[in-house]
């Protein structure tokens, strides 16, 4: 079992919190893990990506080869398209639909959505609205993780356990908010896949 995940977004959107949650779950079930991150210059409102690889065998490269990613999780729609060359023919795109517009030449949103719809396997989710409905705008990344959860080869319970471990320090309430966000994302994905 091996899952190659590309996380995408804009500097400051917190894609590494998604990576950390998956990583924690993977370690729970003793999987190998390698994760390449972007630090420094490109964080300041620029595009950022992270390669996360989990496997029951040893992993060689920190970087996912092009054409091999099982899933692209993007917290921003245009950013989900930037990494298409990495996606395998059977891979999934799971993307937030809320654009982050900090450049003057951001394309027409409709064109972005159409490009995503041209792909074979995709889930488009308005994670921000779902998080808002749950009363916690900040947990939209957990909604995203929930939406990606059917494709990670990690059981939903293990992901939940990972989240309990990560947020446990912050109290029961924070844990529950994040678990609810995870579940909401999962439910959306199950209905729309």
């Amino acid at each position: 079992m091996k899952t190659d995940i590309i996380l995408a977004g804009v500097g400051g959107q917190g894609i590494l919190s998604i990576a950390a949650s998956i990583g924690m779950a993977a370690l729970k079930i003793n999987l190998h893990l390698k994760q390449a991150e972007v630090h420094g210059m490109s964080q300041r409102g620029g595009d950022v990506q992270s390669h996360l690889r989990i496997s029951d065998k040893e992993i060689a490269s920190d970087l996912i080869p092009k054409g091999k990613a099982d899933i692209i999780i993007s917290v921003e729609p245009m950013e989900s398209l930037r990494y298409l060359p990495y996606l395998s023919p059977t891979g999934w795109i799971v993307t937030n639909t809320k654009p982050f517009i900090n450049i003057p030449n951001y394309p027409e949103l409709e064109n972005v959505m159409n490009e995503i719809k041209k792909q074979k396997n995709y889930i488009m989710i308005d994670a921000d609205s779902i998080a808002n409905e749950l009363g916690s705008a900040r947990s939209s990344n957990m909604v995203m993780l929930g939406a990606a959860s059917p494709f990670l080869n990690i059981s939903f319970e293990t992901l939940e356990q990972g989240i309990r471990d990560i947020f446990g320090r912050k109290g029961e309430e924070v844990v529950n908010v994040n678990l609810a966000a995870l579940k909401a994302g999962r439910d959306f994905a199950e209905k729309n896949r």
Partner: peptide, 20 residues
Amino acid sequence: KQEFGSDKPKIVENRPPSFC
């Protein structure tokens, strides 16, 4: 021999870092 995913669509613009 390698097979890549589909090309990055033309509409995807660069997003350079910027002042906060």
